[in-house]
Amino acid sequence: MSAKTIAIACDHGGIEMKDLLVKDLTASGWSVLDLGTDGPDSVDYPDFALKMAEALKDGRVQRGVLLCGTGIGISIAANRFAHVRAALVHDAFGARMCRGHNDANVLVMGGRTTGPEVARDCLKIFLETEFEGGRHARRVAKLS
């Protein structure tokens, strides 16, 4: 898949936000690899963090978005994989810093704790912000 492909996954707590962000991404020219879930029935967030980790590891995508009710559980699950740098963000500053300083490859938000306009702003910033490298590269290298 191209560099303009992004994966997105959620549990039942993030389904409404996922649907909103998929529409925005598609309208902006992104190809979206939708890893589920597809409805409001209760599911387990670690299963979707695993799907994201696999998509990153096998190169189908370079970046992703994960959502659950608060973002906490799915970010914990995703960060169990050495090649995943999942950052739970709540605002534009966090979205900018997670990319610029931490080279995060997965944006995480809470479907029940983050408003739709804030989520849209965070996603836009996450996609537009490049990793600064420099002094941050040494630190990021220690994460894996």
Rank of each mutant, 00 (worst) to 15 (best):
A87P: 08
G64T: 07
A86V: 04
A49H: 00
R80T: 13
C98Q: 03
R96N: 14
V61E: 11
I72H: 06
N79S: 12
V118N: 00
G73I: 02
M97Y: 08
D91H: 02
A78R: 08
V118M: 09
Y45C: 06
G110K: 04
V108D: 08
R112E: 06
S31C: 11
G69V: 11
D41V: 09
T26V: 14
E117V: 12
L123F: 06
C98R: 01
V89E: 08
T113I: 06
D58L: 08
S75V: 05
I76G: 10
A27L: 12
A82F: 07
M52E: 00
D38G: 13
G69D: 09
P116E: 13
H83E: 13
R80M: 14
G115L: 09
D34R: 15
D38I: 10
R112H: 04
V65A: 04
G71T: 07
L123V: 04
D103M: 04
T26H: 11
G59C: 10
T26C: 09
H101V: 10
G64E: 08
H90N: 01
G73H: 04
I74S: 11
L67H: 08
H90E: 09
S28D: 15
F93N: 13
R60T: 11
R85P: 04
Y45K: 05
A86R: 05
R120G: 11
Q62C: 01
G59K: 07
L123T: 05
V118K: 02
L56K: 01
R60F: 13
P46Q: 06
A53C: 07
W30V: 02
A92R: 04
D91N: 04
G110N: 09
H83L: 12
G64I: 14
A92D: 06
M109F: 06
V89Y: 12
P116C: 04
G94L: 05
A92T: 01
W30Y: 11
L88K: 11
G110F: 02
V43Q: 08
F93C: 14
G36Q: 06
